[in-house]
Amino acid sequence: MSEIINLKGRNLVEPNDFTLQELDSIFDLADKILADPASYQEVGKGKLLATLFYEPSTRTRFSFEAAMLRLGGQLIGFDNPDFSSVSKGESLVDTIRTVACYADLGVIRHPREGTAKLVSKGLSNFEMPIINAGDGGHEHPTQTLTDLMTIRHEKGTCNNLTIGLCGDLLFGRTVHSLIKALKRYEGNKFVLISPKELKLPDSVKDLLDDDDYIETDNLDDVIDDLDILYMTRVQRERFVNEEEYLRLKDYFVLDNKKLQNARDDMLILHPLPRNEEIAEEVDVDPRAKYFTQARYGMFVRMALIMKLLGLENA
């Protein structure tokens, strides 16, 4: 039996906080839970997860809450900072430090970029690990775990793939995190598909070698090259200018007509929620895996919770 990789007490602020071997250990555990969820329904008994959502979320929050409850653990938290001490002028770090006195593990989402890093530094003398559940347009590492697990299951590998990322690549934090993660695997190529106003920021593009990516604003030109098409929503909440949002929101719409030229084994992924960028008619296409992806998300979060709490041996 292989040795268990211990991640107890570690934070997850950005995807590269874990080595590929450590990521694999999370996916391996997620696979075991997926195969036999009943065996894990009590491993989190007596443990408390704090969900600290300073920004609206349905999928990610429910996914974490479902994950903790399915492990037999319990929850505290808020999804509206107006009801927390934020409204009393307490600093963010102090709020989380106080929560760390009660909970075993914290999950934070915040509209400001870099918040999870700040909180992880503020918690250096506390035992509670913190998980970044999205910080503005910056990073969303647990979505990346979800994406990688889906790719691993549906493609059998995370290596030597051509991945098209389409839509809002500027503010799309899931895209930033996924590129950083997939870049560490071998032989991956990226096709960046966006209007020029929503191109990938230089800070992420600079991580790639020039030969590893192309940029285009035309999905039709490249769809037949792709192993994976990762669609994203143009996010109204990231725009200061409403007119700009309205102009760009329907720039790319994936429908059955566009898919005619795609490969039979191309995966269509989306972090959800979607708006108009994927037509509902695509949902029944066997290549559409975005709801499967959401399901994997819960299992990989169960595995992550177990790893960070050191429950794998329990």
């Binding site: 963010l92 400001r112 970029e113 918040t115 700040l118």
Partner: peptide, 12 residues
Amino acid sequence: HNPRCISNYEDV
């Protein structure tokens, strides 16, 4: 200089 960076809102 990023207006969305936490360092422009909290004492970091």
